[in-house]
Design a protein around this nucleic acid. Structure first.
Lengths: 188, 188
DNA sequence: GTGCAATCTTGCCAGTGGCACGTTAGTCTT
DNA sequence: AAGACTAACGTGCCACTGGCAAGATTGCAC
């Protein structure tokens, strides 16, 4: 009706556009503050168009989480490939959290998305396998992986929510190297 | 008007009652899903009564976070007092996260509360001092404290959001001991 | 007792998520 | 090329939410 005559009825590439808008909105107001209507406004469509593509708000956040897990997996694989160093994988983990805060925030708040989503589970499993191994790995190695993941994940989250001492909050990657040096991983 | 004739107009102890109701609600629907109106309903008052005591929704969540930081500080101090062991303080940290999930969830989502609240900052500072020392501590010790806090915090959050391998998700406290054994803290 | 401040309620408003239903336009069949 | 089908979007509506303004109730100081 009063819709732009220039803009076509069919957006043509709406789903990724909504995803980008959602990430932008989350960066500004957080995952909880983000609203479907605001995201839709940014993409220039009605809010029900977003519902059509993602089912509901949790569905949209699930899609953001899936994208996040894939990006994180890629970043970790690239670090592993480049440095052949488990430490550098950990540093890459912290770097991802800092540079992809909106994704990271959503990824680790399962109350916000559909935990049983198939794509989400697959993306999570792939990332988890890189960090603490698959089901076949022995107990010692798995415990070491969990210890390493816990360390970098804790550091990343503490940095994100402002719980690090000011002396160490400036350069999170440097802090990651210092902190990771206190880990003892005999089977790595 | 249609209000219960039994219940007095003045509740007499409403603030703590609302806090308890908020914690219960958060336990069921998460911090984001909690609503002022639902909390007020549980306490048997109108939703503006809650606004009166806490200013706004963020104020209520801030109060929950303050209570959480105090409870956590007490729990860590008790563990330190009883076992004289830094490891047991870390185990107590994980135990707190598991047994006080509503508080823990709110505490580490600063987007949900008033970060500049004086009581909150004081409660946070007290807990932080127990974990990585005060401002006067030397750099090595501070880095060790941050490493230890990162490890247990990461383990706790990964457990809470279901990112631990199933082999280690059953007994979080036992996992905390195993994982913490990979930390090397020469100055502790 | 009377004034006053603290506590709680009612009424209202804009914003939100989700549903039912209508509209548009691309695609496929014949 | 005409029509049928369906994917992609919009409109209208509903209950719910947070927050504000204004009023009602009560305890308390004096």
């Amino acid at each position: 009706m009063t819709r732009d005559r220039d803009r076509p009825y069919h957006h043509g590439d709406l789903r990724p556009a909504l995803l980008r808008a959602a990430v932008d909105a989350i960066a500004e107001v957080g995952p909880a503050g983000m609203s479907m209507r605001e995201v839709a406004r940014r993409a220039g469509v009605s809010h029900t168009a977003a519902t059509y593509h993602f089912g509901d708000k949790a569905g949209l956040l699930t899609a953001v989480a899936v994208e996040g897990y894939r990006l994180l997996g890629d970043a970790l694989a690239a670090a592993e490939q480049e440095h052949q160093s488990f430490l550098e994988v950990g540093v890459a983990y912290v770097r991802f959290a800092v540079t992809h805060r909106p994704h990271f925030d959503v990824m680790f708040q399962p109350a916000l998305h559909h935990a049983d989503d198939a794509e989400l589970q697959a993306a999570k499993a792939r990332t988890a396998a890189m960090l603490y191994g698959t089901a076949e790995v022995d107990d010692r190695r798995r415990a070491e992986g969990v210890a390493a993941w816990s360390l970098v994940h804790g550091l990343a989250t503490l940095w994100l929510n402002g719980n690090l001492p000011p002396q160490l909050a400036g350069d999170p990657e440097a802090t990651a190297r210092v902190v990771a040096s206190h880990l003892r991983l005999p089977h790595r």
